[in-house]
Nucleic acid binder design. Structure first.
Lengths: 408, 408
DNA sequence: CAAGGTTTGTGATCCTTTCGTCGAAATCTG
DNA sequence: CAGATTTCGACGAAAGGATCACAAACCTTG
């Protein structure tokens, strides 16, 4: 019997929560701000800001530093600095050829970081979970900070609600209850959220990368498969149940090659790593080193390599054209494989994009390579893990996150 | 220097606005509710509801009726009823073969309605604008109600910010400043918003049609072209600048037929009306009557008609499969042509959809025909026009909308 | 028909949170 | 050093919902 679900009745306490959240979010996303910056940013009065900042400070999340004089007249405003060790999150990443973990502090500072390259095999779930748990325990011991959330980015189709990986074609996973398993093994009493690697990637680029300040973004991340994530109107595009953005399986050539998903002619079958390698005359599973070889060959003027890149570029443009018509992003970010080959495929891509996309949306969009590299999903997972804290900082005032306890 | 843009500082007056908005929206979308229903719906106290409803009542937007006894123990709660004539909107629709106008009252009641069929020609902008103005003036004179907003749905690519129709292939329009022109001609001092017909359609189905209560919806409306609109996470999918959802121009067959948009192999070229008619052996411009003929022939077992329908059904499934992977809707609504042929293409569509969509999102989605018919865009335009009122009812307390004035 | 239970409306008062305004403090400029 | 500028800190004011007690209206039961 809800009127709107979110538009539920508001009370004065709601206001404080929202304002506290706005301040915490501002500090987390933009770094240290003076109190007067916060006044300007929120439109609240100095009195209100003082009270709110004071609350955050006494809870330990921020510190107030003596005013820095910056040459302007008037009494200088003290700097409010998010304290990185007051609240941290654990971010985990499961990609096709590596797993990684990091601990990120409030404000976005990476405090600890480990990456473990893995042979590109079908990764055994038990091994991955166990290894991540070890890595996490190690990092936590080193950092010694309270954990307020856990974010996991995985190369697969993920149901947000419970972290079920319904399908991870490149990992060989089917219906793996990753969220539940990690939650049990890690024993961290803080919210855990699992998401698709590209969805995490676009969040990362939006918060701390090429898409800062842009509210309509499409992120395409090509590795073995092609993943995608989007920000639409400033919020992540997650469809029902939190699946969503599987743009690699857009049918672009229905009578084309068979795809690992069972269909034929998915976008992935025209722009994936395997296609590029095969068309360049290499083994489709030559991996990252193979891609390097293709690019070197192209630099040297090798016809076959250039043709392979042209093919991928053209089909990138075709698929992106369709996606531009549907989603109208202002920015398309190419990550992973496609970020690397961007300089080589740019012209073919743009030509085809110009042909496929409708003029009006076409005029708005630009295509750029990603700026965060391999760590994008990890950064995004961390950002996602911070969400509960940022949405309602007051809820964390009592408990200082999960320290070292596994019991209820 | 905004912290979030929307997450701007909140104050106590924000709370009242939000609560007033929640009540107004609840009444508009659900119809009359008792005060105790509102208490349950919003989570506010009886005192608060009393005060808020009182405010709406004294502004004239709602009336309170003597309690209806419904057999349950306890004091009966008076019914709060939105007053349809207290605030109305003007909705306009420009489709390929008809234009229409209606006046819709608060609560969603259609008070006046006119539709004018037009020969399917390139519609002259001046004529359309003039005719709509006449229709609107006529309706307004008959209704005599205050207008709080104007919504326009048009079969074209629309920039929301200013109502520019950048392209209306089936109308023969290019870069028509429809919003500005209508605003000038109508002379109504109330917000005017222009939107794509399919975007309006999905909003209508979401509020008052097949998708009530479903937060992830894809609406496909086939007429001469193929339009689309989506609701994602409860909110309309409008990309940058308010373009968006042009799913008819998804490339599904890059080496296929030429599309009116200039590209080749757009979805539209496989599932549009012209394709169905041509494959059934009729003239591609036989229009609605032609479609009827095809369906009758199919009923009679005509091979060619059945094959044509099978073709469209198959390609519908292909395109929808891709869109399911990207957007993960819970419901796909087929409107216009595709709603009419749904019974005939269902099997081919489902078969192909099952093959193209990934299992997880596939399992969530169902495909149904639209329930609102030709008026869907009109209803959606009205809903959109109500948005300013619903978002902040208090802003309308003083002025009772625009009555009959054209001056500033 | 009367008594008791249940639900809701009403009004007074309290609590929370922000706003507005004051004088004081800290800095730059001339 | 005086003046201008900007901010701080603190106080009371204002707004709005919550709480509580009580009355009203309905049902059920004997």
């Amino acid at each position: 019997m809800l009127v709107d679900g979110s538009d539920i009745g508001q009370r004065s306490e709601t206001v404080r929560r929202a304002n506290l959240s706005a301040i915490a979010r501002g500090l987390h996303e933009r770094g240290p701000l003076s109190r007067s910056d916060l006044v300007a940013a929120t439109g609240l009065t100095r009195s209100a800001i003082r009270s709110l900042v004071g609350e955050l400070a006494s809870a330990g999340f921020v510190t107030e530093e003596g005013a820095v004089r910056l040459g302007t007249p008037g009494r200088p405003s003290p700097l409010v600095r998010p304290d990185p060790v007051s609240a941290t999150v654990l971010a985990l990443e499961i990609l096709v050829d590596s797993i990684a973990a990091s601990i990120v502090g409030f404000g976005g500072v990476q405090l600890e970081h480990v990456r473990q390259d893995r042979p590109r095999l079908q990764l055994n779930v038990d091994d991955v979970v166990a290894d991540l748990a070890t890595m996490a325990a190690d990092l936590r011991a080193r950092a010694g900070t309270p954990i307020v959330g856990v974010g996991v980015a995985v190369a697969g189709v993920v149901r947000r609600s419970d972290g079920l990986v319904s399908m991870g074609p490149n990992l060989g996973w089917v219906d793996v209850p990753l969220g539940a398993r990690l939650d049990r093994v890690l024993g961290i009493r803080a919210p855990l959220v699992v998401t698709n690697d590209a969805d995490a990637g676009v969040l990362a680029e939006h918060r701390r990368g090429a898409a800062e300040g842009t509210d309509d973004v499409l992120f395409v991340s090509g590795e073995v498969g092609v993943g995608g994530g989007a920000i639409v109107g400033g919020r992540p595009l997650t469809g029902a149940a939190g699946y969503g953005g599987e743009i690699g399986h857009l049918p672009v050539n229905p009578d084309g090659a068979a795809c690992r998903c069972g269909a034929t002619g998915c976008w992935e079958t025209e722009v994936g790593e395997g296609v590029l390698l095969a068309r360049a005359g290499l083994a489709p599973d030559a991996g990252s080193a193979g891609v390097d070889a293709v690019l070197r060959a192209a630099d040297a003027g090798d016809e076959q390599a250039l043709a392979a890149l042209a093919h991928v570029g053209r089909w990138l443009g075709i698929g992106l054209g369709g996606l531009v018509n549907v989603l109208t992003p202002r920015l398309i970010i190419l990550g992973g494989l496609h970020g690397r080959i961007h300089p080589y495929v740019r012209d073919a891509l743009q030509a085809e994009l110009g042909r496929r996309a409708l003029p009006a949306p076409r005029a708005l969009v630009s295509v750029v390579p990603a700026t965060l590299g391999d760590d994008a999903p990890l950064v995004g997972a961390a950002e996602l893990a911070f969400e509960p804290l940022l949405a309602d900082p007051a809820a964390w005032f009592g408990r200082r996150g999960a320290m070292h306890l596994a019991s209820a």
